[in-house]
Write a protein that binds this DNA or RNA. Sequence first.
DNA 1: ACCTGAACACCGTTCAAGT
DNA 2: ACCTGAACACCGTTCAAGT
Lengths: 257, 257
Amino acid sequence: MTFLNCNNDSPKCFIRNILTKREQKIADREVELLNVAEAIMAHEGFSGLTMDKLVASCDYSKGTVYNHFSNKEDLFCALCIKSLRIIISQTKRALAFEGTLREQCLALCYVQRLHSQLHPTLFLCVLLAKTPAVQERASVGRLALQSELEQEMTLLVDAMFAKALDEGEIAQASEGHIENLTFTMWSVSFGANALLIGAREAKAIERLNGDKALLFNLNALLDGIGWQPLSQSWDYHATWQRIEKEVFAAEVAALQG
Amino acid sequence: MTFLNCNNDSPKCFIRNILTKREQKIADREVELLNVAEAIMAHEGFSGLTMDKLVASCDYSKGTVYNHFSNKEDLFCALCIKSLRIIISQTKRALAFEGTLREQCLALCYVQRLHSQLHPTLFLCVLLAKTPAVQERASVGRLALQSELEQEMTLLVDAMFAKALDEGEIAQASEGHIENLTFTMWSVSFGANALLIGAREAKAIERLNGDKALLFNLNALLDGIGWQPLSQSWDYHATWQRIEKEVFAAEVAALQG
DNA sequence: ACCTGAACACCGTTCAAGT
DNA sequence: ACCTGAACACCGTTCAAGT
């Protein structure tokens, strides 16, 4: 069972780049299974996604599905990985946005916001995957890949802050540790988006327009670390709209359509 | 079945303050059931908490447990309510902390941090409860109570910001809407704590000391809205430790013991 | 008026038999 | 070397019978 490596504690098949035809077929099937799983989850929520329904909604047997995902937690971990892959690929696009470094930083946050709206359940999988149940039961190979992708994402953000510090755009006082800055931006972005997902129900938030609230947060935070130009001397609402149009027009259209 | 009102769409028994002896007995049993449920969840995670295990771990039958919680999602909603009640009661204690208004704001954030460490799974229930599955299946009465408590919590924080604006401690530019400020603080605090819960696993964060990271976030954010005194002219690490000692010494001891 | 637990449909997981 | 689906243990939920 060659590809059992995928969920039986060796990350081999993830690391190798060139796949045999058989491996390719299996990889394609995994993409298909994850698409089906995401669709079920989108319609019926976390608890609505069952292995039985996944099997019933595809053309493979239980055994085959279990060859891909060693258990249900492993499936959630795979969905978290899918989520991270989307975020990373869009983050790379966002880094090509033309503007000041602080505007690029907004573009990174825009990615999170967009993702939380296009794939709300997938977005929450990243949190779910940190839950003890998933960490204890998912396959070692997949957990390693998850960790690797989180690392990659962190390095992308670290690099952006390093550049901003290097060019003197962030106040000296905040220099301390780049990982503090990365964690800060991540937690603000994550916290706001997670809370906004439940916004319809939570009276405390429903009165707010999500994008405005998030931008308010980001302006306050980035002003707080002294990142030039400050929000009082730059129209970051305009930047936000420019990001939308220039980088993610297609995705926003999908969101509205 | 008098008390079926509790989970059959009338919030009667939650609103009334004076309980008959029978109602009191039922309320006590509910507290007991929730303690058992929390203990199971703490040991075995979200998916480890099953109705079967809850029944097996207490002295009541399935039917009785189902008289309290109309389904599993209703149980999660009840745990979310328990979480909110703890947070609100500690928030009220935090508001009595002697210091500047900005220091009181830190005390409110300290509550969230402490709660996320003392009851990590309960803390995440507040997020879980916003998930469509819970919102669609929990009893109407309990959802109303959840919403009511979120409202109460929001008003407490709103009032603190209103006072700070009133006394001129927050920069004019941030006046806009108080609910923006409340949302900001909530999302930073929530986001950071949620990410820190998974810190052992997430390589991106494990290098950080949680409290330091959170305080860095809060200093940046509160500086960003121009809340006096700014972090450069006040030692908020000392404040953090003062909150720990003067308000939550007992809870911190429980955490370490 | 409330409690009980047997009963049933559904879910997660395995594995002997097949190709 | 991989796929299949029957089989089984466990879980969520109900409800007729009991007190």
